[in-house]
Amino acid sequence: MTSPALDVDTFLNQPLTARIATCGPTVRPVWFLWEDGAFWVLTGPWARLFDRVRSNPAVALVVDVCDIEKGLVQQVIARGDAELVPFDVPRGRRKLICYLGADESRWDTRFVRYLYDDPEVRGTTWLRLVPDSLTAEDLSFSVTA
């Protein structure tokens, strides 16, 4: 039996948590924005991720869902060299809206600061991963009562 095709854009535009692995090895959960064929992850000098990618840009990233009761099993695995690029507020807002909703007045202040603090002072940076390889699979199955 063949697996159904997974619509990568629809899947990755959900507010899911990815896990990103860097040389070390180390793995950490991250929120991300999937846009323009790239994963965008907020980072900066306060995070180990920033230093790890600066010293070795090779990363692997996985986004998956698994709901055994519904038989839903989907995954996207990406690999490549990440780059650290300047933060831009409009993209940051799009990312945070995906996870927190459009009403900024309801956001925790630590998220609002990313948009309104000076990124040059705070050091806010994007980790941008344009995957060299991307594998998407829908391994879902039928659940019988």
Rank of each mutant, 00 (worst) to 15 (best):
V8Y: 07
V8P: 06
T10H: 14
T10S: 15
T10Q: 15
F11S: 02
F11R: 00
L12V: 00
L12Q: 02
N13H: 03
N13R: 04
N13C: 00
Q14S: 08
Q14N: 09
Q14W: 03
Q14L: 03
Q14H: 11
P15Q: 09
P15K: 04
P15A: 10
P15N: 09
L16V: 04
L16H: 14
L16D: 02
L16Y: 10
L16G: 07
T17V: 15
A18F: 04
A18Y: 07
A18S: 08
A18P: 07
R19K: 12
R19S: 11
R19Q: 13
R19H: 15
R19Y: 15
I20Y: 06
A21C: 14
T22A: 06
T22C: 10
T22F: 05
C23Y: 14
C23I: 13
C23M: 14
C23S: 15
C23N: 13
G24N: 14
P25L: 14
P25Y: 10
T26F: 12
V27S: 13
R28F: 11
R28A: 13
R28E: 10
R28I: 15
R28L: 15
R28Y: 11
P29H: 08
P29M: 10
V30L: 11
V30D: 02
V30I: 13
W31I: 03
W31T: 00
W31Y: 02
W34I: 01
E35R: 07
E35Q: 12
E35A: 06
E35L: 09
D36R: 02
D36H: 03
D36M: 01
G37M: 13
G37S: 11
G37V: 10
G37D: 14
G37L: 10
G37K: 03
A38E: 01
A38W: 02
A38V: 01
F39P: 00
F39T: 01
F39H: 04
W40M: 01
W40H: 00
W40Y: 08
W40V: 02
V41E: 03
V41W: 00
V41R: 00
V41L: 02
L42D: 06
L42Y: 03
T43V: 12
T43L: 06
T43G: 02
T43K: 07
G44T: 06
P45R: 12
P45D: 07
P45C: 03
P45Y: 05
P45K: 06
W46K: 15
W46D: 13
A47C: 12
A47T: 14
A47K: 09
R48F: 09
L49Q: 08
L49G: 04
L49S: 03
F50G: 05
F50R: 01
D51Q: 09
D51L: 06
D51Y: 11
R52L: 13
R52W: 09
V53S: 06
V53W: 04
V53R: 08
R54V: 04
R54Y: 04
R54C: 07
R54K: 15
